[in-house]
Write a protein that binds this DNA or RNA. Structure first.
Length: 273
DNA sequence: AGGGCTACCTGTACGC
DNA sequence: TGCGTACAGGTAGCCC
């Protein structure tokens, strides 16, 4: 499910609902997520009070008033649900009880994970340490990307997908970003012109910002913690659009699908050079 | 050191 | 209807 816009939407929603709430009880139904749920998670969380929730790339950093940060990755199908009462559903792995509220972690494929850190150590976690820059930071620009591209021979789609280069882009938004910047996903990074890199940076910011405004993209699993869908689905121009007329050149060309590094890429051969 | 590929898991869609 | 297969928003950890 979740790339940067979805995780950011979840972050905003959790912040709205959980700030200052105190955890009364934690129940773990399934221990084997991507990594084992920390042994003492129930004990670590009970009695804790939610503070500001942050995001880095596709990771959530859930902070507590006490000296504790919960690092959460949603994998492919991880969702949080916030309800006033609890009625069990399939794949509810972690149920966190608050005063008159339940926070539930549900994850069909179990690729998500939870890890517990002391506040000052969470940024040192191996997951976060290797992440590239935040694409929506003001300081993120073509010079930073260009530097990362030096001496690399990969195609641009693969490059954008690598979290070491930029944090937060995934399979949907990489196709959409390259379509928006009219750059072919097959282009190799070492022969990209500065003007093209600039276009890509502009498209990254534009697409991600718009997607956050619309609450992310709901394909099958993804919903916000309060159960809302993400409406960027209606803005997708190429992802999942194989054989459809191209949004830009209309009937002159159809969207093609190809597989790069084992992942589907969608693009227009006429518009993207 | 750096890159490429696979495994992890369940659900769904599709062809036969 | 049922079975087999391919594919799905991600990434750690293996191998080369």
């Amino acid at each position: 499910m979740p790339e940067l816009p979805e995780v950011e939407t979840v972050r905003i929603s959790l912040n709205e609902h959980l700030l200052k709430c105190k955890i009364s009880k934690v129940r773990i139904n399934v221990k084997n997520l991507r990594f084992p749920v920390p042994n003492n998670l129930e004990k670590s969380l009970e009695g804790k009070v939610f503070e500001k929730i942050n995001r880095r790339g596709k990771y959530l950093l859930i902070n507590f008033k006490q000296d504790l940060s919960l690092l959460v990755h949603l994998g492919m199908t991880g969702v949080f649900k916030i309800n006033n009462s609890y009625s069990p559903e399939k794949h509810d792995h972690i149920v966190i009880e608050l005063k008159e509220k339940f926070l539930i972690y549900n994850d069909v494929r179990r690729f998500g994970f939870f890890k517990v850190y002391k506040k000052n150590l969470v940024m040192q976690s191996p997951h976060l340490k290797k992440l590239g820059p935040e694409p929506l930071d003001i300081g993120f620009n073509e010079l930073i990307l260009k530097k990362k591209m030096m001496n690399k021979t990969q195609n641009i789609k693969h490059f954008l997908m690598d979290q070491k280069n930029i944090a937060g882009l995934g399979n949907i938004y990489c196709s959409e970003i390259l379509f928006d910047s009219k750059i072919s996903p097959l282009r190799l990074v070492n022969d990209m012109k500065k003007s093209e890199i600039k276009k890509i940076v502009k498209s990254i910011k534009k697409i991600l910002t718009k997607a956050i405004e619309l609450g992310g993209t709901s394909l099958s699993d993804y919903k916000t913690p309060s159960g809302k869908l993400g409406y960027f689905k209606n803005e997708l121009k190429v992802y999942g659009m194989e054989n459809k007329n191209c949004f830009f050149c209309k009937k002159r060309s159809k969207i093609k699908k190809l597989v790069q590094q084992g992942r589907s890429t969608f693009f227009c051969m006429k518009c993207q050079k």
